[in-house]
């Protein structure tokens, strides 16, 4: 009787010696695009929510990315979803570290009071430290 080719040489699942238990890599998501003009912001937010299921995630808003948090967005006249409100739910996903820079707010005439959530406002030196403190940086 021929051996079943499907099982004879198949690696046995679950018994392979794997690497020692490693902590998951920490992720810094960088949102750098204004909302609605492109899909980057929405895709980035979806990725943040997925990533939060597995590991520690934080979000950095740079440049026009901070516009994603501007309050009072109303997309009813566009074929685009107002996902800015979903940022309020991030804390429920365990993502509580949101950052932006003072310079980016000032250049756009904004304060944190104009935003749907309150990110931690940092300067450029802290920005460098922030980026080096995460294992992986994901750009959107």
């Amino acid at each position: 009787m021929p051996a079943n080719p499907g099982t004879q040489n198949a690696p046995s699942i679950g018994t392979t010696a794997g690497p020692a238990e490693r902590p998951n890599k920490t992720l810094l998501f960088v949102q750098s695009q204004a909302p609605h003009g492109t899909l980057y912001g929405q895709e980035g937010l979806d990725a943040i929510m997925m990533g939060s299921a597995f590991t520690e995630c934080a979000v950095l808003f740079v440049g026009d990315g901070i516009y994603q948090l501007l309050a009072n967005q109303d997309t009813s006249l566009l074929a685009s979803r107002n996902y800015s409100v979903s940022y309020r739910a991030l804390a429920d996903y365990g993502v509580e570290k949101l950052y932006c820079t003072e310079a980016d707010l000032q250049q756009r005439g904004l304060t944190v009071a104009d935003l749907v959530v309150t990110p931690c406002v940092i300067d450029s030196r802290a920005l460098q430290a922030l980026m080096t403190s995460f294992d992986v940086i994901l750009d959107f």
């Binding site: 501007l70 009072n72 109303d74 006249l77 107002n82 800015s84």
Partner: peptide
């Protein structure tokens, strides 16, 4: 106007 409203710039 639709683009202004969508971005919260009204």
């Amino acid at each position: 106007n639709a683009d202004v409203q969508a971005r919260g710039l009204a």
